[in-house]
Amino acid sequence: MREVYLKLLQYVTAVASFFLLATHLVLLHLDDILRVLGVEAGDMTAWSSVSERAASAGWLAFYIVFLAVALYHGLYGLRGIVSELSLPPGAIRMLNWVLVIIGIALFAYAVYIPISAY
C-alpha cells in the first residue's frame, strides 16, 4: 500500500482515537469533572459497572472500534520510529510483518474479552 494512504489512515485514526480515548479516559478517571458537568458515572472500574457495560451492544461496538483505531495508530507510529533507525531493508520488511501480526493478535485477544462477556 502506498505510504500516503497509510499516513492518511494514521491521520483518520488520530482523530477517531482522540474522541474515543478522551471519552474512555474522562469516564474512567475524571469523575469529579463529570460530577461538575452533572454526570454521575460512579465507580466505572467496579465489577457491577464493568458487567453492565459488557452487556451493552453500544459499548461493545465502542470498544471494538476504539481498539482497531488505537492499535493502528500506535503501531504505525512505532513502525515510523523503528524504520528511522537505519535498519537493513530486509529488517524493515520483517518489521512491517511483525507489527501486522502483533496488531492482529492484540486485536483478537482484546476483542475476545468483551465479546465473551457479552
Binding site: 464493568v50 488505537a70 500506535g74 503501531l75 507510529g77 485477544y109 474479552i113 462477556a117
Partner: peptide, 19 residues
C-alpha cells in the same frame, strides 16, 4: 507516543483478568 503505546499494551493485558 511510546509511553501511551506501552500503557496500552499493559492495559490490554490487565483487561484479561476480567475473564
Amino acid at each position: 507516543g511510546l509511553g501511551l503505546l506501552l500503557y496500552a499494551a499493559l492495559h490490554l493485558a490487565m483487561n484479561g483478568f476480567r475473564l
